[in-house]
Computed example of a mutant assay.
Amino acid sequence: MIRRKTDCQLALFLMLFCAFAAWRTTLIPASGTGTRAGPDFFPWLAIIGIAVLALALLLRGLRTSPRPKPEAGAGRIGYGVLSLFAVLMVAYAATFERVGYLPSTIVMYVIGMLLLKERRVVHFLLVPVAVVLGVYFGFTGLLDVYLP
């Protein structure tokens, strides 16, 4: 029962956030660049994505029935792992410009997935490469923003 309530509350909070962000995004001046995305493109993309996921979370909260409690410690990530993840993010920030976007982000992504206990080889090798290349080509091809 607690999960249903939490999902619904979080979804409503996210929808309010999207409404606020949409209002503020309307204040961003259009660049008039024609086919290229302007300065308001990414905020609208993020708002739509968050709103869709918040709606899915709300629907999940309304549909799920109470589940039995998991066994103690199941699915939990300890403070040590989270601390290592924070150290990983600091190391990524320190090496990002020296090493370059593609290699540093792929390596960080794989190590992060391993820290968070992903053990399927296909997932921790193919997913980071696909996501990082998608983001890279999205920024360079669609937005003309070149990453280091």
Rank of each mutant, 00 (worst) to 15 (best):
F96Q: 05
A11Y: 03
G100C: 12
T140P: 00
F85K: 02
L45I: 07
T105R: 03
A30P: 00
S83W: 12
L147T: 08
L84D: 01
V52I: 15
W44P: 00
F41C: 05
L147S: 04
L88K: 09
R67I: 00
L27C: 06
V122M: 07
G141P: 01
A74I: 09
A56V: 11
V81C: 11
K117I: 06
S65D: 11
G61T: 07
R36W: 06
G112L: 10
R76E: 15
L16W: 04
E97P: 00
G32V: 07
L82N: 12
R120M: 03
R67A: 15
G100P: 10
M89C: 14
L102A: 09
L116V: 08
M15K: 01
K117H: 15
G73K: 09
M1A: 11
L147G: 07
W23R: 09
P70V: 12
G100K: 13
M1S: 08
F42T: 04
M113D: 02
A91I: 13
R3S: 14
K69G: 08
V87I: 15
F20G: 03
F137N: 06
V132K: 02
P148Q: 05
V90E: 09
Y79I: 12
M15W: 05
R98P: 01
V122W: 12
G112V: 10
F20Y: 10
F137S: 11
M113Y: 07
P103L: 07
A21D: 00
I77L: 14
I77P: 03
L53C: 07
A91Q: 10
V131D: 06
H123C: 06
S83K: 02
Y109M: 15
L16C: 13
P43A: 09
L58N: 01
V81A: 12
A37L: 14
F139R: 10
A91N: 10
I106V: 14
G49R: 04
L126C: 11
L55D: 01
E118V: 15
F85L: 14
M113L: 11
R67K: 14
G75T: 04
G38W: 01
R120Y: 05
R36G: 00
L84T: 08
V107W: 01
L115H: 06
G75I: 04
S83H: 01
L126I: 10
A19K: 00
D7T: 00
A21I: 00
T6H: 02
W44L: 12
V87Q: 05
V121C: 05
R24K: 13
R98G: 14
G80F: 14
A86T: 14
G61Y: 12
V110I: 15
W44F: 13
A54E: 03
Q9H: 05
G73S: 08
L102D: 05
G38Q: 04
A54C: 02
I28F: 09
G134D: 01
Y79N: 14
Y101V: 08
E71M: 12
R98L: 13
G75E: 08
A86C: 15
T26V: 08
M89H: 05
T95V: 13
T140D: 11
L116S: 07
P43M: 06
R24P: 02
L14P: 01
Y146F: 15
G80D: 11
M1Y: 02
V87Y: 06
P103E: 09
Y136K: 10
L45R: 06
R24Q: 12
